[in-house]
Design a protein around this nucleic acid. Structure first.
Lengths: 123, 123
DNA sequence: CGGGATCCGGATGGATACTG
DNA sequence: CAGTATCCATCCGGATCCCG
C-alpha cells in the first residue's frame, strides 16, 4: 500500500505572503520601535504615498499582523501574530550584519551598536 | 556640541532587498533541500516561467547568494552568504507554525513533522 | 537541458490634490 | 490627522516560441 502524499503548503511561503509586499517589513520594524500613527510611518520614507501606506496597513490588518484602534486619533499596534515576527526581523538584521564581511555597509563599531539595538528591541 | 547623526541603512531593509522578489525564497529553500538545476527549481511551480526563473537566478547570483557552476550541465549552489539565510528561513517557518493557532493550515501532527524537517535541514 | 526573445496584462507603486 | 480619489508609469510575472 502506497503512503498517501499530503500536499502541505510550505510554511515559509505562507510567512512570505505576509511580508512580501513592499514597506510591510519596514512598518513592522517601526512599530517595534514604538511608532503607532499613520504619519509616523511615513517619516523617512519619501517614496511612500498615502495610498500605498493606506493599502498596506489594510492588508496587514486583514492578515492579522496589526490592529487599528481609535485613541485620540487612530493608533496601530502589533497583534500577537505581528509580535511573533520579532525573530524573523532579528535574523534578517543579523544576516546583513554577519555577511557584510567587507564592511561595505557598516564598520565594526556600527555592527556592534546595531546588534545591541536589535537584540534589545526584538528579543 | 551636538552629536553627529550617522544615517545608517537599516540592515533589515538590506536583507529584504535580497529576498523580497517573488520566488527567491522558494528557490533558496529548494537549494537547502538539495535542488541544484534549472528544471528542478521549476518543479511544483507551474507559474514560474523560464524568463522569470532565469532573471531570478541572475539577480541572486549578482547579490552573492548563489553561484553558477558548470558540472555536467549547469549547477547552482548556495554561497556562504546564501547559506547564512538558514536562520531567516527557519524563523519564517516557525512563525507560520506557531501562529497557526486555529490549525487553519496544519494539524498538530503536521506541525511537529514540519518543525523536525526544518530543524534538521536548516539548523 | 538551460535558457533567450518577445509580447502582453494586471498588479503595484508613486505623485498630487482634496476631504471629514 | 488619517486618510480618499485620480491618474499615471512601470515593473513584473507569465505565456509562448525559439535556440545551441
Amino acid at each position: 500500500m502506497e503512503s498517501e502524499e499530503k500536499a502541505l503548503i510550505c510554511p515559509i511561503e505562507v510567512a512570505m505572503e505576509h511580508i512580501n509586499r513592499k514597506w510591510v517589513i519596514q512598518i513592522i520594524r517601526d512599530m517595534f520601535f514604538g511608532k503607532k500613527r499613520f504619519n509616523e510611518f511615513k517619516e523617512g520614507k519619501p517614496n511612500l504615498s498615502n495610498k500605498v501606506l493606506s493599502n498596506c496597513l489594510k492588508e496587514m490588518e486583514e492578515n492579522g499582523l496589526i490592529s487599528r484602534e481609535t485613541n485620540e486619533g487612530i493608533e496601530y499596534r502589533l497583534t500577537e501574530k505581528g509580535l511573533a515576527l520579532n525573530k524573523v526581523l532579528y535574523e534578517l538584521a543579523m544576516f546583513t550584519l554577519t555577511t557584510d564581511i567587507n564592511n561595505r555597509y557598516y564598520d565594526e563599531n556600527d555592527k556592534k551598536e546595531l546588534k545591541k539595538v536589535f537584540e534589545q528591541t526584538l528579543l
